[in-house]
């Protein structure tokens, strides 16, 4: 138990420091990299909680795929230009603070009320070994939670098609311009 606690404290320190560094860093590239570090540490938390599947997905999807696209965009835009915060929208900062506080409140409420669970979760070795394994997760997704699963995949499909449609429209608009250039 103490060994787990020591590892947790070390990881938690790294996670918090990475999150702070992400916020305070001048350079958008560094911010993105600190966020990746944060994601990586969170995935180690999942590993410690006996959820290897979610840990690996966290690395693949967030630290891998999504952040690569972020970096891609930041590099193409030029990271140096982003050093001065844009103040075009006057109500942006107050709104951000307000929404941040709301999120904090929700998190605090969840911790204080412990969701809907009144007693601590029943922990047995059997449940821990099966919990979060890809086999159990897949079974649950395709039986109990089939409907939400299908709806989510449908939403993702819609987003993908939307992205493709957007690029197509751009091309169609560009085409008539060509004769005027020549």
């Amino acid at each position: 138990m103490t060994l787990d606690l020591i590892i947790f404290l070390v990881l938690a320190t790294i996670a918090v420091l990475a999150a702070l560094a992400m916020l305070l860093s001048d350079n958008a590239i560094y911010s993105a990299l600190f966020l990746i570090l944060n994601f990586a540490v969170v995935s180690v938390f999942y590993l410690m909680l006996n959820a290897p599947f979610i840990a690996m997905v966290q690395v693949t999807v967030y630290a891998g795929a999504i952040m690569v696209l972020f970096l891609f965009v930041i590099m193409l835009l030029g990271a140096d230009k982003l050093r001065q915060p844009q103040t075009d929208i006057p109500w942006q900062q107050p709104l951000a603070i307000l929404l941040g506080l709301v999120l904090l409140g929700v998190a605090a409420f969840a911790i204080v009320s412990r969701g809907s669970v009144s007693a601590p979760l029943p922990l047995s070795d059997q449940m821990i070994s099966a919990f979060g394994s890809p086999f159990e997760l897949g079974k649950l997704l395709f039986t109990t939670y089939l409907f939400p699963f299908e709806v989510t995949s449908f939403l993702l499909l819609v987003a993908m098609i939307g992205a493709i449609v957007l690029t197509k429209e751009e091309k169609a608009k560009l085409l008539p311009r060509r004769p005027t250039k020549t």
Partner: peptide, 18 residues
Amino acid sequence: DVNVGILFITSIASIAVY
């Protein structure tokens, strides 16, 4: 020998881009 070996490979491969 982990039960998420394949996912481990994909996650490490996605990190390799950086």
